[in-house]
Design a protein around this nucleic acid. Structure first.
Lengths: 215, 215
DNA sequence: GTCTATAAGCTGATAGAC
DNA sequence: GTCTATCAGCTTATAGAC
């Protein structure tokens, strides 16, 4: 009973607080977030939050770590031999899906960057930059192999990020303009199709059939 | 001397504070911004800020008003009779230019939306939504006239916003990945060309020649 | 582990001299 | 109009009972 009751999430409250903090930080940023508001979102007294996390910054770092750890990227395993249309289509659709599934994570990331990325500069230099350069190389190889129109691979990645994350970060604006209360399945489908088709055509690629495959 | 010395900007300090506040609010949002930090950016004592602006919220509203007033939109005067490729190319390039010229305004706007647009809901409903619907109608007329491929006009506008504003809002990330200290003219040209060409091709339009026009 | 109460310091805003 | 000094209230963080 001593060794086999170890749980990775130290406590259910640990996770609860982490999620509550993610929402608060995503909305107001590090400086704007209030420990009391995080406690309220978690439905716990403020002192309880401090029991699990030493202070505001360490809680913020824990949230950032947690997000980056689950920051799946469906463009990792792509290589020259893959079909660029299929690979880019999958990448774009997965990014759109993530935006709707976990908008808070995207917003928190956006807030951190807006504030100058004070706590993510290491991650950007050591992880994100190499990742982008590596993926850009694959796109360049597709271009060199005549599989797609010449373009700027890194700017293409920026465009995919910007377009897909827009629906998470600017959700309030998008819904306000569309005069809708929330995203529904048909809108998400429409956005996925539009984004993939437009960007793929922009790269001189023929978008895969979307109706038959169902995605 | 009594009537003809009226100046619209009540004072040079008025403008100085407004700009300092714009930077602080753009970086940290309303809650995260500090009046002391605004005063420091303006190079004035904190009490001086309160002399010109009653409180934090009214200063924030003044900054928002100031931004929206100068929020030129180069897609206003477009009509069915215009060439969609030229009109969209101009719109995209002007949005890119604004992103590099006044990134702070874009970032402030982004921060307000991330926080749920508490002070811009009226503007979004009464000004922005009608504007988008109106411009979407023109795009739809181009499609109906066979001037461009069928697409979703509103989503196209979102895509242009997202792609162009990305370079202002995520400047730190973009420069970090490109391993550059700041945006230079050749990079801006490259981004303008890429963004316009990719989106126009994505709409089934032939991008205008960019080298000759020097745009 | 949980929670109330409170200390210590920060922040918005103002009073009042110049 | 400008600026120093300062107050009142908010915010982080902890002490200590349970």
């Amino acid at each position: 009973m001593s060794t086999n009751t170890i749980q990775k999430p130290r406590d259910k409250h640990f996770t609860t607080i982490l999620l509550a903090a993610q929402e608060e930080f995503a909305t107001h940023g590090l400086k704007g977030a209030r420990m009391q508001a995080i406690a309220d979102r978690a439905g716990l007294p403020k002192a309880n939050v401090h029991y699990y996390f030493q202070n505001k910054v360490s809680l913020y770092l824990a949230v950032l770590d947690n997000i980056i750890a689950t920051w799946d990227d469906f463009f990792n395993d792509v290589s020259v031999n893959d079909d660029p249309a299929t690979a880019l289509d999958t990448f774009i659709r997965e990014k759109v899906r993530l935006s709707f599934e976990n908008p808070t994570a995207s917003r928190l990331f956006a807030n951190e960057i807006l504030q100058g990325a004070p706590y993510l500069s290491d991650y950007m230099r050591e992880t994100l930059r190499p990742w982008v350069n590596n993926r850009a190389k694959v796109i360049q190889q597709w271009i060199d192999a005549g599989k797609m129109t010449a373009t700027e691979p890194v700017l293409l990645i920026f465009m995919i990020w910007a377009t897909t994350q827009h629906y998470a970060d600017f959700q309030v604006q998008v819904l306000g303009i569309l005069n809708q209360k929330e995203y529904d399945a048909s809108l998400i489908k429409q956005i996925s199709d539009f984004t993939s088709q437009t960007i793929l055509r922009g790269c001189g690629l023929e978008p895969p059939n979307t109706d038959a495959t169902g995605n």
